Simulated assay, not measured.
Amino acid sequence: MTKATFDRHRRLRSSAQIRSSIRENHVRVEDLIYPIFVKEGENIKNEVASMPGVYQWSLDRLEEELQEVVRRGISSIILFGVPKEKDDVGSSAYSDEGIVQQGIRFVKERYPNLTVIADTCLCQFTDHGHCGVVHDGEILNDQSLELLTKTAVSQAQAGADIIAPSNMMDGFVAAIRKGLDEAGFVHTPIMSYAVKYASAFYGPFRDAAHSSPKSGDRKTYQMDPANRREAFREAASDVEEGADYLIVKPALSYLDIIRDVREREDLPIVAYNVSGEYSMIKAAAQNGWVNEEAIVMEKMVSMKRAGADLILTYFAKDVADYLQQGENGGTSDE
């Protein structure tokens, strides 16, 4: 029998059934983490102008959003707080009656099986908008760790299942792990924002969380987008300090970093599909320039292919709907 002079790769693409049977990466609803913004006040459902379909919710209306989340089978959410008042040390971040703490209790009382992740940072709560204590224009690292630890412990006391510190201070995982352990929360995992770049893709989030710095920028603590090897050092430090998950943020411009971290570390990797990535697709879809479902699923698959175990995304409800309708392989027919 004469062998063909070239390979017939298309045999394994000849039908939807065959393509599905050999698909290497899959997106599942269990992989999704959905961000929710809780805002102090009453009767609030404010759509974020730069993030179509994303809202700020007051607690008296939060049930509307939670029902939609649970109905779709999404099992994990992350809470971000929008307080009424701010001060120079972000005191409402670690108050027992802070908006995030109230939100955690609200969710866990009504949906105890829903995994609640608490974003642990100060930027939404400080009047200067930075993620730590500021003195004479300098963000003070070690003084910030004390307040971040207080915030994490207060969130765990409120019932948070996972603490997700996003501040990028040196030693933040070690400080928070020590604080949680001493407070009796030895079984509460830390989902560290281990690799967080000083990205231009965060603009819409800052609209939603009212967290833009009043002066300067965050480049002294968030990473330079040009750097790759630095990510290895950041991730390795967090693993050594006691992290249980590693977040890479943003996702799409840093798929190479997700792959790099995956190859070096054994902890679960979370890809954060950030606000700017969300808003660009929404805007293009609203203008009829792209097929939203096809492009969103292709994005999700790219993160899984790069090595992400979980995906934190504002598209979570949309993706859950797509999956219920029949899994999209992440490619268009173009």
Rank of each mutant, 00 (worst) to 15 (best):
M1Y: 11
K3Y: 03
K3E: 06
A4N: 10
T5Q: 04
H9L: 13
S20C: 07
D31M: 10
K39R: 14
E47I: 13
A49Y: 05
S50C: 07
P52I: 03
Y55A: 11
S58K: 09
D60P: 14
R71M: 07
I77G: 00
G81L: 02
V82H: 05
V82C: 04
K84T: 12
K86L: 15
K86Y: 11
V89T: 10
S91P: 10
Y94F: 12
S95N: 14
F106V: 06
N113E: 12
T115W: 02
T115C: 14
I117Q: 01
C121E: 02
V133L: 15
H135V: 07
D142W: 09
Q143G: 10
Q155T: 01
A156M: 04
D161F: 07
D161R: 01
D161W: 00
G171S: 12
F172M: 08
A175P: 03
L180K: 00
T188F: 01
A200G: 06
A200K: 04
F201G: 00
A209K: 03
H210V: 07
K214P: 03
K219D: 14
Y221E: 08
Q222L: 06
R228P: 04
R228Y: 13
R228D: 06
R229Q: 12
A231S: 09
F232E: 14
R233N: 09
A235T: 08
A235Y: 10
E240N: 05
G242V: 05
Y245K: 00
I247E: 00
K249G: 09
A251C: 09
S253Y: 10
S253K: 03
Y254Q: 08
D256L: 02
R262S: 10
E263D: 14
E265V: 15
V270G: 00
Y272G: 03
Y272S: 15
Y272R: 06
N273D: 14
G276R: 01
Y278C: 13
A294D: 11
A294H: 10
M297G: 02
K299A: 05
S302P: 13
S302C: 10
M303W: 06
R305K: 12
A306Q: 06
A308M: 02
A308V: 08
T313Q: 02
F315R: 06
A316H: 13
L323E: 11
Q324S: 11
G330L: 01
T331K: 06
T331V: 14
D333I: 05
